[in-house]
Every structure is written in structure tokens, then in C-alpha cells.
Design a protein around this nucleic acid. Sequence first.
DNA 1: TGCAACATAATTGGCGCCAATTATACCGCC
DNA 2: GGCGGTATAATTGGCGCCAATTATGTTGCA
Lengths: 206, 206
Amino acid sequence: MKARRKEKRALAGEIAEAIHMRAYRPGEWLRQIDLEEKFNATRFDVRSALDELAVRKTIEHVPNRGYRVAQLDTETYRAIRETRVILETAAVAEIVARMDEATIAKLKELAARFGAAVSAGTHMEQSQINGEFHHVFYSLCGNPVLEEMIWSLRDRSRGSAVTVWSSHESLLQSDRDHIAMIAALEVRDTAGLTRLIASHIIKDGL
Amino acid sequence: MKARRKEKRALAGEIAEAIHMRAYRPGEWLRQIDLEEKFNATRFDVRSALDELAVRKTIEHVPNRGYRVAQLDTETYRAIRETRVILETAAVAEIVARMDEATIAKLKELAARFGAAVSAGTHMEQSQINGEFHHVFYSLCGNPVLEEMIWSLRDRSRGSAVTVWSSHESLLQSDRDHIAMIAALEVRDTAGLTRLIASHIIKDGL
DNA sequence: TGCAACATAATTGGCGCCAATTATACCGCC
DNA sequence: GGCGGTATAATTGGCGCCAATTATGTTGCA
């Protein structure tokens, strides 16, 4: 069965998710035939999705060779992190100003769920909850364009040479960071939150 | 004759340029057949280019209706300007630090050419020189990713309701801004340059 | 045994056709 | 004369085929 209609434009997202999940590692070639079968899509859909991801710099296109997962050199990786610091710290001021009890509660819940997922969840659950946490956090800034750019850079960070999710240690670190961020946010410690986020990014990129 | 081979991927850029030149106004539908003839391209190429521009948010895609030039509501426009201020002012510090005599000279030359084009040049010349000026300026920041994001937001600003290039007055203002920017850069007045750029963006968006 | 050139297999990518959908024009009806 | 419904025209968009290109395997030669 090939019951797809709405999935048409979502395929790019699915492939991006797979890359994010390290199903395809940086530098690896993405063969169109494999993707057709894996995602049960037509060749045309696969190509569209690949083109979109290439525009977003998630993957790289080499004429007559195909598409491969982007591999960031250290220079570009540094540039991305610097830009992320600029954007994410700039968002902090607005986030602190717009914060409310309901959102704090939601963040706390997500942080707790992340903590649980770290010890007893799948790779995908961890990533999904983590994404949700950061989404709720940054949507607080009240600037959809800024939020979108933060998200886009976050995606591009995946192709780094430094494997972020590989060790259990970094997951625990992320868990601690989440809690620290909420604490700073609760007492409206703008400077502290800024410092926290900056070091979080510089440290390893997530 | 349809001697095209390299243009394949450049078509999106050409269409973007045409939109930038106001050949197609915000909200206007881009008919694929027209574009085929106008740019002497195949239907497939046109569609690829339109898809790319849609991903970049330069145009908007409506299923079964087609593609139209993005029309920014005031809220989004405000969000873009705010984000531009964040990015472009953040770049200033690095730009001042990396500035050198040769670049200053190049900027002066471009500013002069822009001034000349304002009084006696075509619409396209003005835009091209202006783009070159800003490109040289921001490439100084030494962060390709940051530069690329600045450029991308600058592109998206085009679809604003406020027509930037319409009046001769705003062109003269841009000319004055260029000169003021160079002056501030020359004496390494970081704070002044930051203020200049911020007000430049807030004012009308270019 | 190593290497180069050729043959073969696998993969990408250009392109056009036609169905599905939407806009337009026409005509009859109220 | 206005309005609703239908026929027609225009436009978009899904999809597959096959040529062009690149990778792989093999054979002959030094």
C-alpha cells in the first residue's frame, strides 16, 4: 500500500529526522533507491525532499554523484556556534520578560521527562523531548523569525565531527543544563541565563 | 537557441533578482508558463527554482494554485527587522576589528559609485552596487554563516508593504548612510557604527 | 603481481506527458 | 438585469522513462 497524500511535503522532515537520528552519518551518501523503499515514496518525492534539504544545508549535493549528509569542517562548525550564541543569547532578554508560570510548569515537565528518557528511553524519545523543550523555551521570545533561525542553525549543527549524543555523559549534562536554565529563568536572572546558554553552546553544540 | 547548462541552478537566483527588482510585486502570482518563456527555461527547471525560493521564504506556495511573491504582514516584518538588528549589530564588533585600508578603499569606491548611480543610473545598477557594498562590508566579519543569514534576511525584507526603493529620497538617504558607515568604520567607532546600522534597519529596512 | 584499459552494472538526473484542479466565460433561469 | 450553475479553457503538479554519468568488475599485458 502506498497511502500517502499529506506526507508529500513531510518527507524532507522525515529524512532530516533520520539524519538527525544518525541513521545516516555525516559524509554518507544517500541513495535515492534506498530512500524510495525506506520511506515508501516515489523517486520524484525523494528528489524534491533531497533538494529541499540541500537548500537548507542539511545535506550536500554533488552533480552526477548524488546527495550526502553534510560534513562540517571545524571552521564552519565554529562559525555556526558563534552565530548560535549571538541569536540565542539575544533571545534571552525577551524570554525572561515574557515568561509566565504556565510555561515554567511546562518546561519543568519536559525537563523531568527528558531526565527519565535519559535513563530509560530510546534515542528517539530523548531527541524528541529535548527538541520540544527547546522549542517551548525559544518560542517564548515572541519573534518567530528569530526562533526559526535558531532552529535552522541547531539542525545544521548535527553534521559536526564532534558526536554530541554518543556518550551518556553528555545526555546527563544536557539534563543538568535544562534544570539550571529553568532555575535561572524562574528568578529572572537574565545575565545568568545568558551565560548558561553561551557556555552550553560553546561546550559541544547542543 | 537554448544554450543552458550552468544556468540550471542559477535560475532561482535570476527569479529572485527579478522579484527583488519588483518585476513581480508582493502577492503577485508567478505563472510557470510565463517564467519558462521569460527565462527560456524548461518547466522542470522553473519548478525547481520556485521550490527553492519557497524554501527560502522568498515566495509562497499554495497547492493547486501556484507560487506567489511573499507578502509580509507588519508583524513578520517587525520580527525580521528585529532579527536583522541582532545579527548585523553583532557583526559590527568583528568588522571593526578586521577592517583594513584596502577594504575601506573598496567601500569608498562602491559608495561613490552608488552615489553616482542614484542620480544617473538604472534601477538595477543601484541595487547591484548597493548589494556589493553590503556584501563587502559584512564579509569583513569573518563568519560566513553569520554573513549568509544576514543576506538571507535582507532578501526576505523585500516583500514588505513599505516600498523601500520607490522614492528618490530614500536612495539619497542610503547614500548618506553608506558614507556615515565608512566614516565610523575608519575611526573604529564601534558604538557609533552599531547605532547607525540599527537605526538604518529600523527606519525602513534597507 | 600490479596496473591500465575496457566492458558491464548501478545510479543519477533531465524532461515531457497527461490527469487533477482551479479559473473563466457563457447561458439559461428566476 | 442579476445570479447560479454548467461547460470550457488555462494552469498546476504527479510521475516514469531513458539517456548521461559514474562506479565496479574483469581481462590482458608488462
